[in-house]
Design a protein around this nucleic acid. Structure first.
Lengths: 258, 258
DNA sequence: CGCCGAATTGACACGGTTCAATTGAGGTGG
DNA sequence: CCACCTCAATTGAACCGTGTCAATTCGGCG
């Protein structure tokens, strides 16, 4: 089933795969997701703005190919990327009435998306497609989880730690979508973009990556990242998988407060 | 109407005031909120854990007195406060089914809360109390807005800028709850806590605050902060009010991309 | 072959941290 | 009413992680 595909193409049934991993879907729900992927795809060119901060979101969508970034700008040009969006991620999808985009969204590669208005209304119903709703709840929860890790990275971790942690986040998210094989995945971000993700300067990102290569932790060449030493990265980056938060069980081994 | 109240007491009708400022409420909704505030109050001592990261949230609540912090911990003890919670803020309130707390929540002062399970189920209905739902949507949106500003602060702003921006955020949020008069409000956080908010060391927070005082921007003594020069803080901190995101109108004067 | 954006490198400056005292303020008991 | 205790605030000095500036090299593409 996993034949060679063109570089930027999504795995077959990207969305079905992701959703059904999170919650059991009935045939109708599965079919609804499958139809989505066959829909007309919107295409955005590399470096194009997908969504503008402050505008009302009329058509939420899913990314089916390419990467994007959600970002915040300061008036003097500094920018912070608050979220890196990969295939399978939603753009502008939430339950709220009359949602407004809180960030700019920019295509970081050529980008293909499919409209998800139907999914949004199903989510609001909370009864018509319970499996999809459950999965969306978890997706939103995971999204928030990564926002919080990202904040901790920026506020309290050193360059090397941030980078390690972020690489593992990508590994985790891409794996869940079948876009990561043996800790190896396409990594189309420039070091400048990565700098805006990690809150560092380009120069320092470069040096940090080199250190990581020297340490035998990763490979990064030709737009492909490979994790060579997951243990070392996990320790250095203090990475916690969100998996444990996605289930009912209350974890007991989290770092506690006194 | 605004008589002298004991230091830590909330304004009368804290929640009614906040919600009705966001969306029109009918009598039933107003009454539901009013009843909340008269309910039995849970009390947490200063420095007590209110919620543990990873546990399922059985009873969401509103803070009616005191401050708290939502925080993330690294294994070596470093911590990042991802959200400062003040009276009128919710703890653990969201629409999702079976919500799990993504952070620790710690009382930063003596804290009083009221249970909000009723509000949560009303929110899930999305029809029984439309006004309250609309307000909750906006509250969640604002919450996310401030998460994003916080990320930008941590990733891309200098100490002075972060501090200025954060003070204005507090000013904005406390004003909406009637807890800020003429840019002056109770500020019960220690500099150490503030350091964990801003991703700085205690020492540097201290120096930054002193600089701000020297610049005539603020006063901070006896647990009370007063903004003396809002202009200067706004410029330095690059503060953007979320107000413009809480309405339908699409703003045109945001910092753009190219 | 030549061009252009991205990656890389070196030298230096600076913001912020760390360590180690010292001062100050609020609360308690004698 | 004062002595004492404790925790927060403050200060100084040395240190270091990261940013900035300015080239230079590399790699893909026309």
């Amino acid at each position: 089933m996993s034949t060679v595909r063109p570089h930027n193409a999504p795995a077959p049934n990207l969305l079905v795969g992701r959703f059904s991993a999170l919650a059991p879907l009935d045939d109708q729900e599965r079919k609804a997701l499958q139809l989505l992927e066959n829909k007309t795809q919107h295409v955005f060119q590399h470096d194009t703005r997908v969504l503008r901060q402050g505008v009302e979101i009329h058509t939420p969508c899913f990314i089916v190919g390419g990467w994007a970034s959600a970002e915040w700008q300061l008036h003097d040009g500094r920018r912070q990327i608050v979220q890196v969006l990969v295939p399978g991620d939603a753009i502008g999808l939430n339950v709220r009435a009359r949602p407004v985009s809180l960030t700019h969204v920019v295509a970081r590669t050529d980008l293909r998306t499919v409209e998800a208005s139907g999914i949004r209304s199903a989510w609001r119903d909370r009864s018509r497609m319970p499996g999809i709703c459950a999965a969306l709840d978890l997706i939103e929860s995971e999204y928030e989880f990564f926002l919080l890790t990202h904040m901790t990275r920026l506020g309290r971790q050193k360059a090397y730690e941030r980078t390690a942690n972020f690489i593992l986040e990508l590994d985790y998210r891409l794996s869940a979508r079948g876009l990561c094989i043996n800790g190896s995945f396409a990594f189309p971000l420039t070091q400048e973009t990565l700098a805006d993700v990690l809150g560092l300067s380009v120069v320092h990102v470069n040096r940090t990556l080199q250190q990581m290569r020297k340490d035998g932790c990763i490979t990064l060449q030709g737009g492909r990242m490979t994790i060579l030493n997951r243990e070392a990265l996990t320790t250095a980056g203090d990475f916690i998988s969100p998996a444990r938060f996605m289930t009912r069980a209350a974890p007991s081994d989290l770092p506690g407060i006194v």
